[in-house]
Computed example of a mutant assay.
Amino acid sequence: MDGLQEYYARGEEDARLRAGAGLLELLRTEELVRRYLPEAPASVVDIGGATGAHARWLARDGYQVYLVDPVELHVSAASAIPGVRATLGDARALDAEDGSYGFALMCGPLYHLLAAEDRAAAWREARRVVRPGGHVAAATISRFAALHDGLHRGLLADNGFREMVGRDLATGVHRPPEGSPFDWFTETYFHHPAEAAEEARAAGLTEVSTFAIEGTGWLIPHAELDARLREERERERLLWALRQTETEPSVLGASAHLLTVGRS
């Protein structure tokens, strides 16, 4: 967990979600989550909610939001959001009674739990704290994300990057070499497109679906993508296009992030 703490201590996660592919990730996650939320003012637990990118709009919509995150900087920032309670905690052992919440959102923990048993524990905990009939929505990173990013940004000429991608594809475990650039990310687990649904079902969730969050939209050049997202008509056209293939199996692996949703 030291690498995780060091990476997020830079305080750049919030800014990442404000433009380009990060903003697309935020907008599409919000859009997908809204389909499954109970009516406000239901309670929502935002597990690994970082600085509160999702907690902010959930609280604004009238939900009672409890955010838990392992990074002190994140908890401090999220605590300043009106209507959000935030605390330090671990996705594998939540400090909450069974059935405490109407909905659980887990964007982040599954990225950083490299061991299958730890990911299974996070899924079980999310299911445990949601009342029967409620939903758990969890984000994962695609097994092919670094490969596609390398192609997109011309990084495959770097031998270290190429070797890292080879390990990603073989094992799912993403470990940037020591001294690698910040934007190579930190130690992470990259899921095969069908893998998160298998984990969700193993935790006892039913009616499980997996969605491409950004689809192929994240591969649009950053400045062009950001301009499209800022203009209402262009944004709606792009979001409409991504909805058309959001559950298409042949497209899931092209999306940088996936959202898997199941019923408790």
Rank of each mutant, 00 (worst) to 15 (best):
D2G: 12
G3T: 05
L4N: 02
E6W: 03
A9D: 12
R10F: 11
R10H: 15
G11P: 04
E12T: 07
E12W: 09
D14R: 13
L17Q: 15
A19W: 01
G20Y: 12
G22C: 01
L24H: 04
L26V: 03
L26I: 04
T29G: 14
T29Y: 10
E31H: 14
L32F: 08
V33Y: 07
V33Q: 07
R35F: 11
L37N: 00
V45G: 01
G49H: 03
G49I: 04
T51M: 06
G52P: 08
W57A: 09
A59D: 05
D61S: 14
G62D: 03
V71S: 06
L73I: 06
H74M: 12
A80G: 12
T87A: 15
G89R: 01
G89Q: 02
R92H: 03
R92I: 05
R92D: 02
L94D: 03
D95S: 15
A96G: 05
D98F: 06
Y101M: 09
Y101C: 07
A104T: 00
L113S: 01
A115W: 13
A116F: 08
A116Y: 03
D118L: 02
A120M: 09
W123K: 01
W123R: 07
V130H: 08
P132D: 05
G134I: 01
G134N: 02
G134Y: 03
T140S: 14
S142C: 05
D149E: 12
L151V: 09
G154L: 07
L155E: 10
E163N: 13
G166N: 13
G166A: 12
A170N: 04
D183A: 08
W184L: 05
T186R: 09
T188P: 09
A196E: 08
R201P: 02
A202I: 03
A203H: 02
G204I: 02
E207H: 11
E207I: 00
F211K: 00
A212W: 01
A212S: 15
T216M: 12
W218S: 10
L219F: 11
I220C: 08
P221T: 12
E224C: 00
W240C: 15
Q244A: 15
Q244L: 14
H257M: 01
V261Y: 01
G262D: 02
